[in-house]
Design a protein around this nucleic acid. Structure first.
Lengths: 155, 155
DNA sequence: GCACATGATCTCGTTTTGAGACTAATGCGA
DNA sequence: TCGCATTAGTCTCAAAACGAGATCATGTGC
């Protein structure tokens, strides 16, 4: 259990507005509250869906799983072989989290040995364009990132 | 040990499928390898840029930082206030990782007390459209996810 | 019997994250 | 002048997440 820590308690709340009461001295630019920043980004912070969603699909294996499942449904063992360096433990957990959030569905076949198939739900499908866009960006800009990293590490 | 509290050592920074050290096992006969799956998704797995990039911008705070910085440059303290529930330690680390990968730049002003400003680089800016698309999706679909989660937890 | 394959869980140890105290030089009020 | 706040971080320690491997139940082929 204890699968909850990922879901931040709502009352650990973000008080974005108290910053408005803090005038700055040195660099006199007034700062936007998180509410503003986030509104500029195009969403409402009131119940912070961003972190709620991003923390899940941004998990170490989640996006990779979704990507693999977007090609066709996979069984547990297929996924394990498709992503060789995921531990069985994390595979189980990632799949369950994805299922819990409604991105994928799980179908058990009472064969012997039993087999379990995972596939994207419509909700999961609807995420793919945005996810692929991010992946495409990653591919295009990976060299630049590698270069920046090298430069940084040299210093 | 390997405390290295803040500076992630360059060598440990690449623990995701180091393509050189751990070649993909193309063992499966009947199912698509990760390489195939990922090629279908539109990129080359040979040096796995996806996890390399996704694991960073998909980090717990990275995307939020980028989002906030996309509105305007921020100082350290501003960021801290803008995202009240990030610890100073994680803020420092997130910013340094982002800087290392070339998403943001860091400018120190020798005022007193000293101030440090962070801002998006052109590379960071170029990521924003894709990131915003993901955020937009998150906002649009958050209710569905919450519902799925509730349904799942009920069972 | 015995090994094998399935999907999943348990235990253990390592890595990453979180909470909070602590640093430096200086400005401010009392 | 004492004390306290400011700046951007660092340090320590505990908690959480993660990884590797063993284990489980069960039926098939040998």
């Amino acid at each position: 259990m204890k699968r909850e820590p990922l879901a931040r308690s709502p009352k650990s709340g973000n008080r974005f507005l108290d910053s408005a009461a803090q005038p700055l001295r040195i660099v006199s630019v007034e700062e936007p509250t998180i509410a503003e920043a986030v509104l500029n980004a195009g969403f409402d912070m009131s119940n912070c869906p961003v972190r709620d969603v991003m923390d899940h699909i941004g998990g170490k294996w989640s996006s990779l799983m979704l990507l693999v499942l977007s090609t066709k449904p996979h069984r547990f063992g297929e996924l394990k072989r498709a992503v060789p360096d995921i531990s069985q433990r994390m595979l189980t957990q990632t799949l369950r989290d994805l299922q819990r959030d409604g991105y994928i569905s799980r179908h058990v076949f009472a064969t012997v040995p039993p087999s379990v198939e995972y596939r994207l739900t419509p909700l999961g499908e609807s995420l793919m364009p945005a996810l692929r866009a991010l992946v495409a960006w990653a591919v295009d800009n990976h060299p630049r990132i590698a270069e920046a990293r090298q430069t940084f590490d040299a210093a």
